[in-house]
Lab assay of single mutants.
Amino acid sequence: VEVSPDIYQQVRDELKRASVSQAVFARVAFNRTQGLLSEILRKEEDPRTASQSLLVNLRAMQNFLNLPEVERDRIYQ
Rank of each mutant, 00 (worst) to 15 (best):
17 R>F: 00
73 D>N: 08
28 V>A: 10
61 M>V: 10
60 A>F: 06
43 K>F: 05
51 S>W: 02
54 L>W: 03
65 L>I: 09
16 K>L: 15
40 I>A: 03
18 A>V: 10
34 Q>I: 06
9 Q>Y: 13
51 S>A: 09
35 G>N: 15
41 L>I: 06
73 D>R: 04
69 E>C: 10
3 V>S: 06
30 F>Y: 03
52 Q>F: 05
19 S>C: 15
25 F>D: 00
2 E>R: 15
51 S>P: 13
57 N>E: 08
63 N>Q: 10
25 F>Y: 03
33 T>G: 12
25 F>M: 03
75 I>E: 15
24 V>M: 08
66 N>H: 12
71 E>V: 05
24 V>I: 15
25 F>T: 01
66 N>F: 08
74 R>T: 12
32 R>G: 14
62 Q>S: 11
23 A>I: 10
70 V>T: 10
34 Q>C: 07
36 L>S: 12
3 V>R: 04
73 D>M: 05
11 V>E: 00
32 R>P: 04
34 Q>H: 09
27 R>W: 08
49 T>A: 08
18 A>Y: 05
28 V>S: 12
63 N>D: 07
44 E>I: 03
64 F>S: 00
12 R>G: 03
53 S>I: 07
41 L>C: 03
48 R>F: 06
46 D>H: 15
53 S>E: 11
6 D>H: 13
15 L>P: 02
10 Q>N: 12
2 E>Y: 14
70 V>N: 08
10 Q>H: 07
8 Y>C: 03
51 S>K: 11
60 A>R: 11
41 L>R: 01
27 R>V: 07
8 Y>N: 01
25 F>E: 02
66 N>M: 08
30 F>P: 00
4 S>M: 12
69 E>W: 06
66 N>V: 08
5 P>R: 10
65 L>W: 00
9 Q>R: 14
57 N>K: 09
17 R>A: 00
1 V>G: 06
13 D>G: 15
65 L>G: 02
4 S>Q: 07
60 A>K: 13
14 E>Q: 02
71 E>A: 11
47 P>L: 10
60 A>I: 08
16 K>V: 11
20 V>H: 00
11 V>A: 06
21 S>E: 04
57 N>Y: 08
16 K>E: 10
8 Y>V: 03
22 Q>M: 07
8 Y>S: 01
67 L>A: 07
10 Q>F: 13
24 V>P: 02
38 S>P: 04
62 Q>N: 08
11 V>T: 09
48 R>A: 12
45 E>L: 08
16 K>D: 14
63 N>I: 15
17 R>C: 01
44 E>H: 06
73 D>L: 04
31 N>T: 07
4 S>W: 09
40 I>V: 05
7 I>Q: 03
53 S>F: 05
28 V>W: 03
70 V>E: 12
76 Y>L: 02
20 V>A: 04
42 R>C: 07
69 E>K: 10
45 E>N: 06
77 Q>P: 04
34 Q>A: 12
33 T>P: 07
31 N>F: 06
77 Q>N: 12
72 R>Y: 01
39 E>S: 10
39 E>M: 05
17 R>H: 00
62 Q>R: 12
17 R>Y: 01
71 E>N: 13
11 V>M: 05
37 L>E: 01
35 G>W: 13
58 L>R: 00
63 N>Y: 10
43 K>M: 12
10 Q>E: 12
40 I>E: 02
63 N>H: 05
35 G>R: 11
6 D>L: 08
33 T>W: 04
47 P>C: 04
27 R>A: 10
65 L>T: 01
36 L>A: 04
46 D>N: 10
69 E>M: 09
45 E>T: 10
17 R>N: 02
71 E>P: 00
59 R>Y: 06
12 R>Q: 03
67 L>T: 08
41 L>A: 02
48 R>G: 12
6 D>F: 03
70 V>H: 14
17 R>W: 01
72 R>N: 00
27 R>S: 12
24 V>A: 08
73 D>W: 03
41 L>S: 02
46 D>T: 06
67 L>Y: 10
73 D>K: 03
40 I>G: 02
34 Q>M: 07
23 A>L: 11
70 V>S: 12
18 A>S: 15
63 N>G: 11
29 A>I: 15
64 F>T: 02
23 A>V: 11
57 N>C: 12
67 L>C: 05
68 P>A: 08
31 N>M: 06
77 Q>M: 15
44 E>L: 05
75 I>P: 01
3 V>Q: 04
42 R>E: 14
77 Q>R: 12
65 L>A: 01
31 N>A: 09
12 R>C: 03
61 M>K: 01
60 A>G: 10
11 V>Y: 00
23 A>M: 08
55 L>W: 06
68 P>K: 08
71 E>M: 06
47 P>N: 02
28 V>R: 03
69 E>G: 08
54 L>P: 00
61 M>Y: 02
13 D>W: 14
8 Y>D: 02
33 T>S: 13
12 R>T: 10
65 L>C: 07
44 E>N: 11
47 P>T: 13
43 K>H: 11
36 L>V: 05
53 S>K: 13
65 L>F: 03
10 Q>D: 07
11 V>L: 09
32 R>S: 13
17 R>M: 00
58 L>E: 00
64 F>G: 00
22 Q>V: 10
40 I>Y: 15
13 D>Y: 14
67 L>S: 09
49 T>R: 11
50 A>G: 09
64 F>A: 00
